[in-house]
């Protein structure tokens, strides 16, 4: 263990020389735990309904240590706060804490779940969006997860362009309530994607642990197929589709299907699975004839086929 620590510190050596400041939490003065009943004397409204709160489990248990029980489990020992007759300076008040302190406090208990395994490196954490930006422990309006608002409204607070996409005529039904943002995204951070180049973030949750989230619902597109559409597997669904919403049918990136296809199938360069360019359409096609402008009318199994390398059946 010591060896690992030495190695890790050597790796971090260039940064260790920077000025260090002790965490304010660690610098808290000696204090005493007073129990929830004492808190409830002043904070009547919160105490009255606290049995509804998931954190009430820590009180009901009766077996948790004082620093992990009820009010003081999150707000720290209340001795000084009680002695001072209240005040934010004498208690761990979340409104006064830095984002890093908030996340450290919550993870003190909530680091156990797999869904939060990547929270330290998530894009939200990097942008200082931490637990209390989305969760309201005392004033939640949702039946589960103590969210401050309905999930989509919560996400729209910062992601207005995404709201705009879900307001478009063609969209996944998030506003209608049948799909939720967390069906595809993990706001607490994600493992690296196994599609595209695996370097982007977007907090996308893999389905089946390691595949695109789209395949969770669109199971028929998953295959495996004898004839895979290579770009689907290499570049992912967003190569052709807009995942949130679009003005185009089938969430396509272009208004008609043939430009989606032809922008890749132009025969140029060293693209494609054989480095020979993505092949141009057959000479039997006449793009002036409307039936050839709707590529998927014949190439019906465009996501992958078991019988035809051209995805015809």
């Amino acid at each position: 263990m010591r060896f690992i620590r030495v190695i890790a510190c050597l790796v971090a050596l260039p940064f260790v020389a920077l000025p260090q400041t002790a965490s304010p939490l660690k610098a808290a003065p000696p204090n005493q735990y007073i129990g929830n009943d004492q808190c409830g004397i002043c904070h009547v409204e919160i105490a009255k309904d606290f049995f509804r709160n998931p954190h009430y489990k820590s009180i009901a248990s009766g077996k948790e240590a004082p620093e992990k029980t009820g009010c003081e489990g999150c707000h720290g020992a209340g001795g000084n706060h009680l002695a001072a007759g209240g005040g934010q300076a004498t208690i761990r008040a979340f409104s006064q804490m830095t984002p890093a302190q908030i996340i450290d406090t919550c993870l003190g208990c909530h680091s156990k779940d797999l869904s939060r395994a990547n929270i330290r490196r998530s894009a939200h954490t990097e942008a200082d969006v931490v637990c209390t930006n989305c969760h309201s422990v005392h004033h939640s309006t949702t039946p589960k997860f103590l969210l401050a608002k309905k999930q989509s409204e919560l996400c729209y607070q910062c992601h207005a362009p995404i709201r705009a996409q879900f307001d478009m005529p063609v969209k996944h039904r998030v506003n209608e309530g049948v799909v939720q943002c967390t069906d595809c995204h993990n706001p607490h951070g994600n493992f690296a994607a196994s599609w595209r180049t695996g370097t982007g973030s977007n907090l996308v949750t893999a389905s089946h642990e390691n595949e695109e989230p789209c395949l969770k619902c669109h199971a028929d597109k998953r295959g495996p197929f004898v004839f895979e559409h290579a770009s689907v597997r290499v570049e992912g669904c967003s190569g052709c589709h807009m995942p949130h919403g679009s003005t185009n049918a089938k969430l396509l990136k272009r208004p008609v299907v043939f430009t989606v296809c032809l922008e890749c199938h132009n025969g140029a360069g060293t693209f494609g699975r054989e480095n020979l360019g993505v092949f141009v359409q057959s000479a039997s096609h006449n793009m002036l004839d409307p039936k050839y402008q709707r590529c998927t009318s014949c190439h019906v199994k465009i996501h992958g086929s078991n019988s035809d390398p051209r995805f015809l059946r």
Binding site: C9, A12, P19, T21, P224
Partner: peptide, 22 residues
């Protein structure tokens, strides 16, 4: 390394093999 500094490194590998015969 300090309360002001964090260093994160992530390494991922993925191997997908698709084959089929008909």
């Amino acid at each position: 390394p300090s309360s002001r500094l964090s260093v994160i490194n992530n390494t991922s590998v993925a191997n997908t093999r698709m084959d089929g015969a008909n």
